[in-house]
Design a protein around this nucleic acid. Structure first.
Lengths: 217, 217
DNA sequence: TTTACGATCTAACGATCATTAGATCGTTAT
DNA sequence: ATAACGATCTAATGATCGTTAGATCGTAAA
């Protein structure tokens, strides 16, 4: 009787470890960043706008829940998402949050309205257009993330190089810009810039994780 | 610049509310119970082996994350899972936990080994056998849960009535017993009892939530 | 009306967590 | 060697959380 309780409690306790690991905003942001590709601690800290000490502490938690792996490379410690399932969970918990929390939907509308977004269109359709070259799928993330994983037929121009490299883009064609996902604002900025310069640009609010694409190794 | 930070932080903060709500073992157990059907606070407290005060406090948290709904019925306050997505998330977070945490897999093996389990068989096959009457799919949960939702062609004999109602079961046929899911031990006990009484019994470690069946209203 | 009971709220306690600073350790560059 | 830097560990802080007890409120049965 009491024995059954003990084992039951143990089971729920283990599942709660996943919940606990995903109960901190900054840890979620770190997971999203790691979904883009492997990164060292100082890179993660900079990109999440936190101190390296705090990043290290949060990564420690994620590691305790086995959601991320580490590998020492000389001076650096490289963090990676543990596997595809973690990336899928990041998409899943976000999806549930959007479904249940009005506040989140409202906040999303704020950033979604400004630059025109691509409708939650069929992905095959976009890929077909990109393959034919009728639209340019533009990856505006840092180039290391593009190299780690990117959408099919996407071209890489990091956001901070975009202004100087506008000539690389065909003037007549539609440009679809994407970044790390719906919570990342880089594609918004890119679309704003492109439109100002006379391009026909849309934001694709999805990233590699949403497409089920995951960096290798 | 700083403006973008503020809205980003807000987004991750909202998602973290879901993580926080699912970071407590008892809250997860309450979610699982509510996946079986609507329940009053005192029922939930009894079935989760906690005080009503504590149950009330945990349910308050789940309600704050909009994962559950409430409705006052006279003396009682009835809690319900908010929608199908919540039940699916409960299955998803459990699945990730099993994938990532060795301790959880080990604990599961402890309860899985004793009574022989049904292989992660195709569900259609089981339903076909049950429809023809070649196997008896036995729901050993309390009858209110059976009434709220149950597997196709399942018969209801609650665990605490099973010993007295053995005569209702055909002696020659295979009995497949299930309960609330892989973390619930009622089906284990049922299989143990049935085998002792000469039945050919197996445990189906899945419940309604795992089959994507969700109580109405 | 009185009584019992389901349920929540409040206050309070100890425990845990987020965050920062200081010290430490290993590696790379000078 | 020394210096610089990435990264972690420790300790310490304030905040938050889990849990329990006491009081309160509404409803249903006596």
């Amino acid at each position: 009787m009491n024995d059954a309780r003990r084992i039951k409690d143990l089971l729920y306790e283990q599942v709660a470890r996943i919940g606990k690991a995903t109960s901190s905003p900054k840890r979620l942001e770190l997971i999203e960043l790691l979904c883009q590709g492997e990164k060292a601690v100082d890179t993660l800290a900079r990109e999440a706008s936190i101190s390296m000490k705090l990043a290290s502490a949060h990564l420690r938690e994620l590691r305790a829940a086995h959601l991320v792996n580490t590998e020492k490379q000389g001076k650096y410690v490289i963090y990676r998402i543990a596997n595809r399932e973690v990336a899928e969970f990041w998409v899943a918990i976000r999806s549930l949050a959007e479904d249940r929390l009005v506040e989140l939907r409202l906040a999303l509308q704020q950033i979604a309205c400004n630059p025109k977004e691509l409708a939650p269109q069929d992905r095959d359709g976009l890929v077909k257009l990109a393959r034919k070259g009728d639209v340019v799928v533009l990856d505006v993330r840092p180039s290391e993330e593009y190299l780690a994983a990117h959408l099919p037929f996407a071209r890489s121009i990091p956001l901070d190089e975009l202004k100087m490299r506008l000539s690389e883009l065909p003037k007549g064609k539609m440009v679809v810009a994407y970044c790390r996902g719906p919570y990342c604002l880089m594609a918004c900025d890119a679309v704003e810039l492109l439109r100002k310069k006379g391009f026909d640009a849309l934001r694709l609010p999805e990233g590699v994780a949403e497409w089920g694409i995951v960096p290798e190794r």
